[in-house]
Simulated assay, not measured.
Amino acid sequence: MLQLINLPDVVLETILSNLTYDEIARNRIVCKQFDRTCKMLLNRGFNLMEKYHGQCLRAVKSQLPRRESERRSHPLARHCDILTAIETRISMLSMTFIKYVDLNLCCFIPGKVIDEIFRVLRLIRDSKTPPRAHEILQELRDISSMAMEHFDEKILPDLKHNICTSVVSNVTSYELPSGSLMISHHTANANTSSLPHSFSSEKLNQTFKKIYCKTRKNRLSVLSVKGQISKLKLRMKRQGFQMRLQSLKLQEQAKKIHDQDTQLAEMRKHLEEWEQKIGDLTAELSRAREETQKPDTIENCKRKHIDHINTHDNDPIQTKELQAKKRKLIVERKSSSDAKDMKFKKFLSDLLGTGQSKDCIPSTSQ
């Protein structure tokens, strides 16, 4: 036994956690260390039991239909009834014990109730068709009712008495509004027999003086805290103003960045256009250079063609043949009495006459 007591709290807690909650509750009487560890395990077990029950209830309700009439014929209807009855039983236990557990006056004493609730929850989880609610919850109702009655009749009066005595003994921890309450010696002597725990008037006067001193100190501390709070509020206002200014600056910077992005996009577009134009100009330049480097250009061809035509015009033999062909065509034309035809013939004869005179001139000169 001494070896168990000398173990660290973590090791002792791990060893006791392997027991049932009923056995943990029974082992509280061993020693103070066991009592402290068992109290913590019992309170933790009650919280775990509440969480596990809530998970089971949510899982079952999520599978039930929304209509109340359809829930009665559903296979999980009996599960839901059992879990709802356990929920009411847990709420009754919580109202009985948890208020005093939170005040650290006691722990959740009935460990057997936790074991029974866990047993019912595991049975509901593992079986598809559990028994009826009044059958499976009979033991839980009996032991929980007995635990609550025992707590109300046997344990609660002692807890209330301990609360009253702790309040009276720790009266210096309470604050009064102001002023020192002095009790006269005559009234004190008359009522000393009625005061609990044989308090004298001198002790009461000392306690009230201490209370008054503490109230003054508390007032000063409250004033200093209020001053600090006001300073913090001013600082928060300044910080808020600076944050608003920074947000405005950020908005302006974002607008400028957007404008610069648009300008850069336009400049990039212009650069692409100029690059296209420069590419076209370089292509034309290269084409012009290639044409200038060729031996027979178009202008030379034109000049050669004009010179060839001029040489043919200056040949007298070819001109005479052309004139003879023209005359033959005129002679072979049918005679017509039309005035227009006569005018045309005259025009041609004049034209041919002038042409012969011109042809004769260069021959005489030669």
Rank of each mutant, 00 (worst) to 15 (best):
K326C: 01
E321I: 13
T319S: 14
K334H: 06
I330G: 10
A339L: 13
V331H: 08
L322N: 06
H312N: 02
L329P: 00
T319R: 13
I309D: 09
A324C: 02
H312G: 02
K328N: 01
K320I: 13
D313H: 09
L322Q: 01
V331N: 10
K340E: 12
Q323T: 08
Q323Y: 15
S337P: 06
I309T: 06
D338R: 08
D338E: 07
D315G: 02
A324G: 01
D313Y: 15
D338M: 04
T319F: 06
Q323I: 11
S335M: 15
V331I: 15
K334V: 09
E332R: 10
I309L: 08
N314W: 03
L322R: 04
K325P: 00
R333S: 14
K325G: 01
S336W: 03
R333Q: 15
A324D: 05
K334N: 14
T319Y: 06
T319A: 13
E332Y: 10
D313N: 14
I330Y: 14
D313M: 15
L322E: 05
I317C: 04
S335A: 13
K320M: 08
N314V: 06
L329W: 08
H312D: 06
Q318M: 14
E332F: 10
S337R: 10
R327G: 09
S335Y: 12
A339Q: 09
T311H: 08
R327L: 12
K328S: 05
K325A: 06
P316N: 00
I317L: 09
H308C: 02
E332L: 11
N314F: 04
D315A: 08
A324M: 05
I330L: 15
K334W: 07
A324E: 05
I317K: 12
T319N: 10
V331Y: 08
I317F: 12
K340D: 14
N310Y: 11
L329K: 09
K325Q: 04
H308M: 05
T311W: 09
A339I: 11
I309K: 05
K340V: 12
H312L: 10
